[in-house]
Amino acid sequence: MTTLTMTRLDPQSRAARRGMSDISIRNLFIIPTILFLIIFNIFPLLYSLYYSFTDFRASTNAPANWVGLANYRELLNDPFIWTNFTITAKYVIVSVAGQVVVGFGVAMLLNRDIPFKGLITTLLLLPMMLSMAVVGLFWKLLYDPSFGIINYVLGLGRFEWLSDPDMALYAVAITDIWMWSPFVMLLSLAGLSAVPKHLYEAAAIDRAGPLYTFFRITLPLVAPILMIAIIFRTMEAFKTFDIAYIMTSQPTTEMIAIRLYKMAFQEWQTGMSCAFAYIVLIMVVAITNIYVKYLNKVKER
């Protein structure tokens, strides 16, 4: 199917004079990358797969004993782990839905001729460029019950956003929405500006109402790129660790990544946490696959 075509090295070039062939140049570029990938990605992946079947603890010198599927069996039977998953699912849904609504909405607002459009867009993108830890820390200050500006502005008195077990997860989700809506906005904006103007004009002449135009023209054309934004954000939200870990330590905000961290580096159950990580990996891959299938369907139509 594919024929191997490589540009021949110019015999006059400096590389050729040094006795290098085009194959050796190709290798020079590719081998370091492959080595890097093997050392830092593939090897740990396989190594942890092995550990997930053992009772290895990184804190002791005891040799790893093969326990078979015991880790997996135990994890999947643990009701606390399922609570972690439920919390994560709730967080993913709230946070991603919020980001899509806010991001797409702002993109719709920006997708017209307004003064300082470029400047506004750039400023709106700032949250996305901050460090997660910084965002977590200063939102913690904003949420502060005694001097936080949020309670002051909303007039909520001493409402405890982050210590309230029912509210803490949503408080973290709001922070995440604030931080990542710009990402959805950016992609939506790209999608929106690709919708040909004459379609809107045709719709205006055809007496289509604004809602009808939105659902019939705007949304179908932006859907594929919006789906990509959703895939990215879902994967990220699933793995959320830093923001939640920094902002609050409520049991109701203990998402799988936090549970995993505690299991691996506080309880030192290395083998068990490897198995846990694999379960999470399989879930993320599965969810992403569903999205990608759907994305392809959207594109095909």
Binding site: P196, H198, L199, E201, A202, A203, I205, R216, I217, P220, L221, R301
Partner: peptide, 12 residues
């Protein structure tokens, strides 16, 4: 009714 130079058909 307006027929434009570009085929402005509604997608999908």
């Amino acid at each position: 009714a307006l027929v434009l130079q570009q085929y402005s058909l509604y997608p999908r």
